[in-house]
């Protein structure tokens, strides 16, 4: 356990500089977005009311009120989220390959540590999970700050205030990263970790068998996908809608656990017997 924690700490510390930069970019870009979008709205209102002589209510019926979901839909808000998501996706690969291609093949030392090699694998997976959840947690913490800034700039009569839940509720595209209930959160990120473990296994296959390994990695991905789809295929083609949707979700959780277990077992085998340094 201690070894594992040390490895997690070690892996996170290797990424922490880029991580802090990404968090800073998110905070700054989103706050700039809030200020610009709010000011733009206030400027429109001023122009309409003072120059076009509209009354407040006429302006509101023509342009609508200002609320935070307008900002969320802008590139100022979604851009940094996309950047962070892209960074995590990239790092899933980099977290392994940097050990081979960095200065003095570091993987050699990692694998020589007096601990189970599986701990290296699990520590890398944990790091990806923590980094992802950190982005989500950080975003949820800065959202109330951003809505407060909107309140400073736009007068009360011109805005509709939204809570964090309402903001995310209003944008269905965000439901996958910010699920509305805790169960969905666990399911969403559980599925995410399953994908990460499948990708890790494919990476280890490539590291073990190089060119041939790429094909094997792709094949493993296809097998995992097929296992995940199997309850759906059975439901549609074999039992003709026999299962209730809630039962289907439980079946998917079950096969998801099978895929995770299979990936960990297979990776353990590869790390122990086949890996090439």
């Amino acid at each position: 356990m201690n070894r594992y924690l040390k490895l997690v700490n070690f892996e996170f510390n290797r990424f922490v500089k880029i991580y802090v930069v990404l968090l800073a970019i998110t905070l700054i870009t989103q706050i700039i977005g809030v200020i610009l979008k709010s000011r733009e709205y206030v400027a429109n209102a001023n122009e309409a009311i003072y120059q076009e002589q509209l009354s407040t209510s006429e302006f509101l019926s023509q342009y609508g009120t200002m609320s935070f979901d307008t900002i969320v839909r802008s590139v100022w808000f979604l851009g940094p989220i996309a950047l962070c998501a892209g960074a995590v996706a990239f790092y899933i690969f980099l977290i392994w390959y940097r050990d081979w291609f960095g200065k003095n093949t570091f993987i050699y030392r990692l694998l020589m540590l007096p601990t189970a090699r599986l701990n290296v694998f699990l520590a890398k997976g944990t790091t990806i999970l923590l980094v992802t959840l950190g982005f989500i947690g950080f975003q949820l913490i800065i959202l109330p700050i951003e809505t407060t800034i909107l309140k400073w700039i736009v007068p009360k009569d011109f805005r509709v205030d939204m809570g964090v839940h309402e903001i995310i509720g209003a944008i269905p595209e965000l439901h996958l990263i910010f699920p509305q209930s805790f169960i969905e959160f666990v399911l969403s990120y559980g599925a995410g970790m399953m994908v990460v473990f499948v990708l890790f296994t494919a990476i280890l296959l490539e590291r073990s068998f190089r060119w041939k390994g790429i094909l094997m990695g792709v094949a493993y991905g296809v097998v995992a996908l097929f296992i995940m789809l199997s309850p759906l295929l059975v439901q549609d083609f074999v039992v003709d809608g026999y299962f209730y949707i809630s039962e289907m979700v439980l079946l998917e959780v079950l096969v998801g656990c099978i895929v995770i277990a299979l990936s960990i077992w297979f990776s353990n085998y590869l790390l122990k017997r086949k890996i090439r340094v």
Partner: peptide, 30 residues
């Protein structure tokens, strides 16, 4: 002491995500 960065990260996760879903159960009153 050497774990402080990891601990900070865990606190961010707990605070952000924790309040979001605890608030969820309170939101009914809204």
């Amino acid at each position: 002491k050497k774990y402080w960065k990891l601990i900070t990260l865990t606190i961010i996760i707990m605070a952000g995500i924790g309040t979001f879903y605890i608030y969820d159960s309170l939101a009914a009153d809204a």
